[in-house]
Nucleic acid binder design. Structure first.
Lengths: 233, 233
DNA sequence: CCGTTGATGTCAACGGTGTTGACATCAACG
DNA sequence: CGTTGATGTCAACACCGTTGACATCAACGG
């Protein structure tokens, strides 16, 4: 009598869920992340989640105060598992690049969760680790103390911003992106948009290349204002 | 018998809507933008819109195919009215700065619509004008042709990204932002996050200052790769 | 071993959302 | 004047998050 799924739309079994065992925060989070990664944030419904777990939708409320609470836990879980600290021995520039690129890739890998992240304040405990690591590398690069906030916020806005753009783009694969770009820029009238038409053949279909290029610009700026390699231990 | 409003929650009259005149796309768009600007994207409901116009919710479907269609028209209307072309006589750096900053401010000014923008492909016709102007200034700055796409995409991701971050931040006023920042960074444990705690006093409460700083970094990069001032007409 | 108790899952229901189809109305045109 | 097409209204549908009452079930104390 536990089973109420396969009622309306999905006759598929509750996937690989509990068998007799009770529900669990971790179990719910795992299923939620799977749904969100595979079918997007919009598909992550309490009723859908219940169907996935072979459980009534309202059972979630025994483990999370609300759907927003569940999403918050989901995000924190993500940062906890997928962001790794930099190694102290390497050059600040390599470490800072790794932090930024890993951070950005997290947004790309989990587009649905990124959209969820956008909508709520970032007081996630795990985010503070990224702040700490970033500021530490900025100090190693020789950024003066009174400019640490400015550079950190620049990097934060840059990374999260690029991540949001990537996450919200409805293009799932590189091939789709290429086709979309080609279609859009082919429809561009060279008479009305001569400059844009000139740049059109050189639009990068792979957004990651653009991001890696942009990151070096930021790192260049840090290096310039930091007075070159300072405490290069 | 046209009037069905003031039924449940809002006993207020339908504001300054039509009096006997028929509904109109422009009328709906105006009301929608007002609601969205004043109360956020979540408040923009078809039923709410109908109440605002003194009209049934389903009347919108006579003028827009769906709510997504309405949002799309709303965004295009925004770009049409609030983005102005740069002047050809000024230096490329000033023009490019104006384009980027105006673009970003559009996101700040209309946070609700920005969130709507995030969720859909940017094939808005008016966006092409921004592309055209940006690439033109990049050419004036001396960026080689095969790098125009790279720089344009960098600027696009940078500007839209920073705009999305600003739009999705739930802090409405500068005072609220300052309090939030203070609270978060005051709760920061200096033992666990020594570097972040060092940077904490230098966090900028006004995000616009950070953005203006970041823009100069981008412009510096353009100037560096463009080979200095080239066709400075 | 029984009985109580607290946690967990189920069910029906509420108000909200976008959307559809049938119906009424009203302006314009031949 | 009569027809016709566009426009607004209404009831309804499926879905959403959420709540409160109820059933069940495991664990613990006596």
């Amino acid at each position: 009598m536990l089973c109420c799924m396969s009622r309306d739309t999905a006759p598929s079994p509750p996937a690989e869920t509990r068998r007799g065992t009770r529900l669990d925060r971790a179990m719910i989070l795992r299923a939620a992340q799977r749904v969100c990664d595979e079918e997007g944030l919009a598909a992550l419904t309490l009723r859908r989640l219940g169907r996935e777990l072979g459980v009534d939708a309202t059972a979630m409320y025994r483990h999370f105060a609300s759907k927003a609470d569940l999403l918050s836990a989901l995000i924190d879980d993500l940062f906890l598992r997928e962001v790794r600290p930099p190694e102290p021995e390497r050059a600040w520039r390599d470490n800072l690049r790794d932090i930024i690129v890993d951070w950005w890739k997290l947004y790309r890998r989990h587009e649905g969760l990124s959209q969820a992240m956008a909508g709520q304040p970032d007081d996630e405990p795990q985010l503070f680790h990224i702040t700490e690591w970033t500021v530490r590398e900025l100090m190693r690069a020789g950024i003066p103390q009174d400019q640490l906030g400015l550079f950190y916020q620049t990097i934060y806005n840059f990374t999260v911003g690029n991540g949001l753009v990537a996450a919200f783009s409805p293009w799932l694969t590189v091939a789709e992106l290429r086709d979309e770009q080609r279609r859009v820029y082919a429809a561009l009238d060279p008479a009305r948009f001569p400059s844009a038409a000139t740049a059109a053949p050189f639009i990068y279909p792979e957004n990651e290349k653009v991001f890696l290029f942009s990151v070096e610009l930021i790192l260049d700026a840090v290096e310039a204002k930091g007075g070159g390699a300072e405490c290069e231990n």
